[in-house]
Amino acid sequence: MLVDHTGALTFGEIITSPADLKEFEAEIRYKKQLFGYLYGQPTVPFLLISSVDISRTAVVRRLLKEPDNVLLTTPTCEDLKGLIRQRDLKRSPTRRIKHEKLISIKDIPPRRPFDYKKLHDERMQSIIAAVTSKKGVGELGTPPDEIPPIVKKVIFGGGSTPPLLSGCSMPDTPPSASRGRPTTRIRSRNSSRRSSSP
Rank of each mutant, 00 (worst) to 15 (best):
T132L: 13
P144I: 09
S169D: 04
I128Q: 02
P171V: 13
G136M: 01
R179D: 05
K135H: 06
A177L: 13
A129C: 00
G167M: 12
I186N: 03
F156I: 08
P149M: 15
L164P: 00
A129V: 04
S178W: 07
S178V: 13
L165C: 04
V151W: 02
T173F: 04
I128V: 08
D145I: 02
G141K: 02
S133I: 01
G180S: 09
S166M: 12
S160R: 15
P144D: 11
R181Y: 09
S133C: 06
P143C: 03
P148G: 14
G167Y: 07
K135M: 03
S166N: 07
V151C: 14
D145R: 02
P175D: 09
S166C: 08
A129P: 00
G141L: 00
G180E: 09
I186F: 11
V151T: 15
I186Q: 00
E146K: 11
I155D: 10
P148Q: 14
I186V: 15
I147V: 07
P162D: 07
V137A: 15
V131M: 14
K153P: 00
S188P: 04
G158P: 04
I128T: 00
K152T: 07
R187C: 08
R187E: 13
K134L: 13
E146R: 08
C168W: 15
F156D: 05
P182Y: 02
K135F: 03
S160H: 11
G157Q: 15
T132Y: 05
S169G: 09
T161E: 10
P144M: 10
T161P: 05
L164E: 12
V154Q: 09
P163A: 09
P175S: 06
A129M: 03
I147A: 13
P143T: 03
A129L: 04
G159H: 10
M170S: 06
A177G: 00
S133V: 09
S166D: 12
P163R: 12
P149N: 08
T184P: 04
P171W: 08
